[in-house]
Amino acid sequence: MSETTKTTNEEILAEEKAMLEDIAARLSGFARERANLVPLLQMIQERHGYLPPDAINMVAEYLEIASCEVYGVATFYNQFRFTPPGKHQIKICLGTACHVKGGDIILENFERKLEIREGEITPDREFGIDRVACVGCCALAPVATVDESVQGHMAPSKVEGIILGFQIEKEREAREKQKDDAGEK
């Protein structure tokens, strides 16, 4: 195992631990009733980007229902993921208007550029791609949402720009961090 993957794995474990502590602390804010099942899952999804297996068991225990039921409900809805998302999540709208205006070509361009398929994340966990049914910005079709911002009138040529933008930002951060580290020394 190389040095970098080792740290990444350790990081993931530490992240998961912190995540479960956070969830445990927040459960008590919800009444112990079945009606809170979906809201609880939404809280976890919103704060952590996905539902780890342990979280499903925690919710089941808290609501005193079988964990298979929680799993059954969670897998029914599009909103819930079961694997961690990318740091930057790109959602390609494939609503009717976006489809007619070539949304699938935008999706393909992201897939090609990032070398992953929809539903996957890049090995460095920087980017993930999802398709969504409609973000309700049909007049601006084709649309993609990048993290929280909606990008209207997408074109294949814009795809490269968006990814490049994040990469430049990341490099800049890395440089600044290096400078800071050097300064501290």
């Binding site: 298979c68 039921e69 059954g72």
Partner: peptide, 10 residues
Amino acid sequence: GQPFLTFAKR
């Protein structure tokens, strides 16, 4: 009385 099987996915 708790189920141990469920429908999953969609």
